[in-house]
């Protein structure tokens, strides 16, 4: 049934490509057409997608890479991803709009692919009010710029934060503290995750110090 939705979009926009995986339908559209396509899906009587369930972003940098075997990169032992040594997959980012029709009980995902050197997407806040915070959230975590957004600021993190933490090349154990850390030279933390763990005295870690190199950690 949702194949009909893909055909509907492709009939109107021939440069869209559709795919389906276990009942999960995706339409990949060029970046310039995303407002048109989503507006069409919202207003067309055969689609009637009045609900924007989510806007998500994906970083496919380490997808099926040999470093992690496609598994989790979030382990402590995994080294930070060096973009100089291994260039990124292009297009590296995806932005996915998950749309749903309450009246017709059908869903469709509209996907936009982005190259890492040009991360701009037109905003859809003119179509859905709820896209406001979703787009701020994605800007906060991934650094995708939404052109025309009325108030594109960080949503959750503090303004002093440098970088975008959900990018795959963000160092896993990097911290950016706002309050200077107390120094207990004799305090040794037990084994476990986090800085100062595994028997390293806290005075030998450099968390919260002024001379922290933001690209290396521990």
């Amino acid at each position: 049934m949702s194949q009909a939705l893909i055909e509907l979009v492709r009939g109107k926009f021939p440069d869209a490509t559709g795919s389906s995986h276990r009942g999960d339908e995706v339409v990949t559209v060029p970046r310039e057409r995303v407002v048109e396509v989503i507006g069409f899906l919202r207003n067309d009587p055969a689609a009637e997608m009045k609900l924007l369930r989510q806007i998500a972003a994906v970083d496919v940098l380490t997808f099926r890479s040999e470093t992690t075997g496609g598994g989790s990169i979030a382990s402590i032992e995994a080294p930070a991803y060096a973009l100089q040594k291994k260039p990124s997959v292009e297009p590296r980012y995806q932005v996915a709009y998950n749309l749903y029709s309450i009246t017709r009980r059908q869903s469709l995902r509209v996907r936009v692919e982005l190259r890492s050197d040009d991360m701009k997407v037109p905003t859809i806040t003119g179509l859905f009010r709820t896209a406001d915070w979703w787009e701020r959230y994605i800007y906060d975590m991934f650094g995708v710029h939404f052109d025309g957004h009325p108030n594109l600021q960080r949503l959750m993190l503090y303004p002093e934060f440098v970088g975008y933490p959900l990018r795959k090349d963000y160092p896993v154990r990097k911290r950016q503290l706002l309050v200077p850390e107390l120094d207990f030279p004799d305090l040794v933390r037990g084994p476990g995750p986090g800085p100062g763990g595994a028997g390293v005295p806290m005075s030998q870690t450099h968390v919260g110090r002024a001379n922290v190199d933001p690209n290396t950690y521990d």
Binding site: R175, Q176, V207
Partner: peptide, 8 residues
Amino acid sequence: DNYATLQG
């Protein structure tokens, strides 16, 4: 053990 949390 992530970017947002104070470790104690």
